[in-house]
Design a protein around this nucleic acid. Structure first.
Lengths: 231, 231
DNA sequence: GTCTATAGACGGATAGAC
DNA sequence: GTCTATCCGTCTATAGAC
């Protein structure tokens, strides 16, 4: 009853967030001015400061509104896996899927801006802006602890240090795959099939191969994951 | 005889390039102003425009002076491998080492700024600035073609499309490992051993594991690389 | 809540003396 | 080649009318 279709307040707010998200991907955080954002959103310049207070707070909001959902989905996936495993350590592949699966799903959603946001997020892992870095670190702390713990338990013979490095590598491959695929021109024209829905199986296979590769340091050929499953 | 130790011209130029390189890593391309650069270099503000013409040209020079060496080293490594193989296709591990080895070596050189530059380069693969992207693509075109060709020949049964994707993933893992390790605070305090010289074997092992992982698409468990070597 | 107008700081680039 | 001084554009943020 109370003006159901378009209310002025939240609508302006969301228009700003959507416009900012797209422009941040296209030009980067610094190179995107409030004028560009408000012009694209079709709102007044002063609206940003009215709704968000500052450009920094707007940036934070752009990340937070999607990151909260993403990490909630990750934790829910891990909870479900651990519940149905009932104390038995999870298979590493399940843990990896639980972490990177939701990210890739979001990266495939071209309808509601999920893809746009994941490109932005992937790029932001190497963002120099100290404010953004610290905010991201806080936002990721819990999820990272939970998944690393699960991975430690799922690979009992492997030094935590090695698992940490490989998780780091996996995040790199994933971020880059999402953020760089159509942004970068290095591979321009080389991909016949850049279908994002096929990225998931391709990437998963690569990640698990890397995770289960022989350890480099100890010379006696020990596996990161027991058995010849990786072969 | 002609003023051997410190000539004024080239010295100023290099001071600017070195200062810019460090500041670009720390703050990003856009957020680094010419005033910051000249202050750090201890030269006059106008010197940048005198020596380079514009900020854009300075950025290009910062990349070019090191990238030329890096890619020359890569091509030399590949040439040597192909010469001594004499027509026989190279092992994939050799091709991968030829491409990523020189990059990781440079990333370990803390003496002459190699490490600083590689952090910058790793971050720049996802740089939104169109000018920088196109410049990088041109600079990489030849090396990329040569190495991809070698990799195609070394993995004869594998669709080029799959190899392309995995090369993409490998570049991602590497860039991120170099650029993000101490920049990102996600893993802050988690690494007991961030020794960059040990990064090389760790990363190589991961990359090769990923490259040789089972292909995801065709369901009959075919290997990206024949034999159980990955196991 | 939305607008116009503007303050105040900083950006890149250049002119011209030395 | 190096310097000072300055132009002119753009930025974020805010004050205050509506």
């Amino acid at each position: 009853m109370t003006t159901p279709p378009v209310r002025p307040g939240p609508e302006t707010r969301n228009r700003i967030l959507d416009a900012a998200e797209e422009l941040f991907v296209e030009h980067g955080l610094d190179a995107t001015s409030m004028r560009m954002i408000t012009t694209k959103a079709g709102v007044n310049l002063a609206a940003v400061n009215y709704h968000f207070g500052s450009k920094g707070s707007l940036i934070q909001e752009v990340f937070q509104r999607r990151l909260t959902d993403l990490n909630r989905a990750r934790l829910a996936a891990l909870d479900a896996l651990e519940r149905q495993a009932g104390g038995v350590p999870l298979k590493p592949s399940k843990v990896v899927e639980g972490f990177f699966g939701p990210a890739l799903e979001m990266a495939c959603d071209t309808e509601h801006g999920g893809r746009t946001f994941m490109q932005l997020l992937g790029r932001t892992y190497t963002e120099p802006n100290a404010f953004v870095r610290q905010f991201l670190a806080e936002e990721y702390a819990e999820v990272l602890d939970r998944f690393l713990g699960a991975l430690y338990r799922s690979l009992p013979g492997v030094p935590h240090e090695e698992i940490l490095w490989r998780f780091h590598f996996m995040m790199g491959a994933t971020s880059y795959a999402i953020a760089g695929t159509d942004a970068l021109q290095l591979f321009a024209g080389k991909f016949d099939d850049a279908d994002p829905s096929r990225l998931m199986p391709r990437l998963m296979s690569f990640l698990l191969g890397g995770l289960r590769a022989p350890l480099a340091d100890n010379g006696h050929g020990r596996q990161a994951k027991g058995g010849p499953k990786a072969a």
